[in-house]
């Protein structure tokens, strides 16, 4: 069934962000003959429209007041884009902006939003939205009876769109007032992605043999994405003074539930797993194929981390 789709885009260094392109990629597949448009707000939005692959039309405003996301300012603009585009489906990222816009937009349009979807598909006429629930123990599939349907989508759920950008642009109004006033921002340096928030956690244990091992782990985390991966340690490694206690994972440290947990040279003692077993996917790297960690792992690599991890870093850089 054809869908007119509006992707609520976000800008990153003057261009549509990676996840925006992913949403456009998904939209192209779901449109089934309908239109795909994108909204872009902030400095350079008009210029960026040309890079919004897969969108035929872009709703833009170059007002610099949009550069910092404020829900109350973005909402009227996005709402205008939805109305002008005649969208039957609105897609946005499960990002800081999407998390706030999704529910609020749904309220203003008297419709509903499915949050944090990993799959959006057209199942014989009705759109189905699938998302994890119960800490990843379950998945739920929804339909939305009202129009338009809105979904926020987890990054990496679609492949990025390719091809030409939007050929047509329409101007959205400049930003209005916001009762919420941003008075300061602090960007945490690359190491600072909180362990508990990172979608990917790379953790090392005593089996690394020396504190220098964590340097390699940091390289791996950087290769996975500085905005995604954080490095943690088992208590054994922290005890040896190889890593700061604030980054300890386990019964007496932090409890993390990332999408991907890569345990390197960690035996998988219960006290450690207490802090990591909620991870959605665990990859164990250990020399001992009987190591406990493999009882928890989806994927296991038996081998010396000193060889496996540099190879992995190389592979990721390709």
């Amino acid at each position: 069934m054809p869908q007119n789709i509006l992707v609520v885009g976000e800008l990153e260094n003057g261009a549509p962000s990676t996840v925006t392109l992913e949403l456009l990629g998904g939209a192209a597949a779901l449109a089934a003959g309908g239109s795909v448009s994108v909204s872009l707000l902030g400095s350079g939005a008009t210029a960026a429209a040309a890079q919004a692959a897969g969108a035929s039309k872009a709703f833009v405003s170059d007002d610099a007041n949009y550069d910092t996301f404020r829900g109350e300012q973005w909402l009227p603009a996005v709402q205008a884009a939805v109305e002008q585009s005649g969208a039957t489906l609105v897609l946005m990222a499960q990002s800081t902006a999407g998390r706030e816009l999704g529910p609020r937009l749904a309220h203003r349009l008297n419709t509903a939003v499915a949050m944090d979807c990993v799959k959006v598909e057209d199942a014989g006429g009705a759109l189905q939205f699938t998302r994890p629930a119960y800490g990843g123990n379950a998945q739920a599939t929804y339909t939305i009876a009202t129009n338009p349907a809105i979904a926020t989508v987890r990054p990496k759920s679609f492949d990025e769109a390719t091809g030409a950008g939007a050929s047509e642009t329409a101007e959205l109004p400049a930003a209005g007032a916001s009762r919420v006033n941003v008075v300061g921002k602090e960007v945490t340096e690359s190491e600072g992605l909180a362990l508990t928030d990172a979608p990917i956690v790379v953790a090392g244990g005593r089996g690394l043999g020396a504190p220098e091992g964590f340097e390699t782990l940091r390289e791996l985390a950087a290769a996975l994405g500085k905005d995604k991966a954080a490095v943690g340690a088992s208590r054994a490694a922290v005890d040896l003074g190889w890593f700061p206690p604030s980054e300890q994972i386990g019964l007496t440290g932090k409890v993390v539930t990332p999408d991907l947990y890569i345990a390197i040279a960690i035996s998988g003692a219960s006290q450690h797993m207490a802090g990591a077993s909620g991870s959605k996917t665990i990859v164990g790297v250990n020399r001992d194929k009987d190591a406990n960690i493999f009882d928890f792992s989806k994927y296991g690599v038996v081998g010396d981390w000193k060889q496996v991890i540099p190879a992995l870093i190389e592979e990721l850089k390709k």
């Binding site: 419709t111 379950a138 739920a140 599939t141 929804y142 339909t143 989806k298 994927y299």
Partner: peptide
Amino acid sequence: GSRLQLQKLFIPEKGAQVEFI
């Protein structure tokens, strides 16, 4: 009064065993 309608709640298939690479 719901607008978001749950069609199916299920436990995703999981590889019960570790897959050694």
